[in-house]
Write a protein that binds this DNA or RNA. Structure first.
Length: 433
RNA sequence: GCCCGGGUUGCCUAGCCUGGUAGGGCGAUGGCUUGCUAAGCCAUUGUCUAGCAAUAGACUCGUGGGUUCAAAUCCCACCCCGGGCGCCA
């Protein structure tokens, strides 16, 4: 959410940035907002004047009564005022509601380094790492590998839970936990504070993190409760300091959240319908930072660097894209995606999303800081990045490290977390033709 | 889920019964003083609006409603914390 105070100070610059989104409705909303704000402020002054007059009469009444004098004349006078105040307040509330509604819908101001583009095809590759492995055989996709090695059972998951669920089995479960443990250790070495967050959050907290449309499309609701299943630890980590004024000396606060993630994936029909790449439930190690506004570009680079080092150490080839204006979404001011090479699909696919949300989330969630007790407060900047979404990364490992005999080599860095095991093969030896 | 007790400004606390517009302490910040044991004194201390400004006004007692000329105070609903009971991996 944009800060109404910032908008008041510089409406023209913000309007120009919003115009880059190529969406007339956004500009209409913005102009409407300015109009409502003007009206609201006018009424605010009027309401203050009325309340002031009521307070003075009320004080007179109190004084008269204190001295045992008759106050009925003043009381009669005072009786007129509440209705007038109520009428003005009612109108104010309507403007306020409209403003809040617009503010909650307006997207973030984009960073100047975001490339202009229409959709994800216009994202700009800014660097690549690793070479796509060359196979002397036709590489399989993770579904075939998972089925043949008895590591994934999608059919039975469909029976128990429906589409986009899975049973992980055997060594793949262990590899999943190896990724989590390895990711956690890397984060601790980098000085991030590990957090295991609540897996359910109140509406208010999630609204502090995401755009409204996103909420409806992705978040599962708990029946009869004001609680929603966690879609990412990001939301819980932001909520950790919601409404707080942080000590400037404590910044940057770098957290690492570990949690399952639950997503409806509404509207994703026909895309990635098979396998475990896009599912309703997965595990993720997440990086999250609260920092001073001037530090956020640097922190953004730090987060993507951590993710890159993670994938480099696994040996998975990837490239980094700078996400363009048309694909950026509502919340981020700038976003890098790390896309890993998947031999089974013959494509680069998103494994990591690394966003600088600037003040968008901190305004919505009201997270501020100051250096000294009587200083004015400022909104922090927040950033988030996947370190590893484990199911997707399992896909990348399976497809990149598959061997001709149908086994899967375990990346060296994960071997210690697999009790020394170096490869996954079918129980009872290679499958017979 | 039930029964108690609680939630007051950055923190602690008074006020609630009996409605009259938040008092005190600590801390922090700024200033003054520094010839009685390093302490002392004064001011400021949340949010919003108008104004170039000094300033003025309004709001704020967990949240939202209600009663009233007037609500921290009375009424209703909900949230959170502590204790007890029940249930429980």
């Amino acid at each position: 959410m944009l800060d109404i105070k910032v908008i008041r100070e510089n409406p023209q610059a913000i309007r120009e940035n919003l115009a880059k989104r190529n969406d007339a409705r956004i500009l209409e909303m913005f102009d409407e907002l300015l109009k409502c704000d003007q009206e609201w402020r006018r009424m605010f002054t009027e309401a203050g004047r009325l309340r002031g007059s009521r307070n003075r009469v009320t004080e007179d009444i109190a004084k008269l009564k204190k001295h045992g004098l008759d106050a009925s004349q003043k009381i009669k006078e005072a009786e007129q005022i509440p209705a007038m105040i109520k009428a003005v307040e009612k109108e104010m509330d309507e403007y306020r509601k409209k403003m809040d509604d617009i503010l909650m819908r307006l997207p973030n101001i984009m960073d100047d380094t975001v490339p202009f583009g229409k959709d994800d095809a216009d994202n700009v590759v800014i660097r690549s790492w690793g070479k796509a492995a060359e196979f002397k055989f036709k590489p399989k996709d993770h579904i075939d590998l998972g089925t043949e090695l008895d590591l994934i059972d999608i059919e039975r998951a469909a029976k128990t839970s429906g589409a986009r669920f899975y049973y992980l089995k055997g060594d793949l479960v262990r590899l999943n936990y190896a990724l989590i443990r390895y990711g956690l250790d890397l984060m601790v070495k980098r000085g991030f504070t590990p957090i295991q967050p609540p897996y359910m959050l109140k509406r208010e907290v999630i609204s502090g993190a995401v755009a409204l449309s996103e909420f409806e499309d992705t978040i599962y609701k708990i029946e009869d409760e004001d609680l929603f299943l966690l879609a990412t630890a990001e939301h819980a980590l932001l909520g950790l300091h919601a409404g707080e004024i942080l000590d400037g000396k404590s910044l940057p606060l770098r957290y690492c959240g570990i949690s399952p993630c639950f997503r409806k994936e509404a509207g994703a029909h026909g895309r990635d319908t098979k396998g475990i790449f896009r599912v309703h439930q997965f595990e993720k190690v997440e990086q999250f930072v609260f920092c001073r506004p001037e530090e956020s570009p640097k922190e953004h680079e730090l987060l993507i660097q951590n993710a890159e080092e993670f994938f480099q150490s696994l040996g998975i080839p990837y490239h980094i894209v700078n996400v363009c204006t048309g694909d950026l979404g509502t919340v981020a001011a700038k976003k890098y995606d790390l896309e890993a090479w998947l031999p089974g699909q013959g494509k680069y696919r998103e494994e990591v999303s690394c966003s600088n949300c600037t003040a968008y989330q901190s305004v919505r969630s009201n997270v501020r800081f100051r250096d000294r007790p009587n200083d004015p407060t400022r909104h922090v900047h927040t950033l988030n990045s996947t370190l590893v979404a484990t199911e997707r990364t399992l896909v990348a490992i399976m497809e990149n490290f598959q061997q001709e005999d149908g086994s899967i080599r375990i990346p060296d860095v994960l071997v210690p977390y697999m009790m020394g095991q170096t490869e996954i093969r079918r129980a009872g030896g290679p499958k017979k033709g």
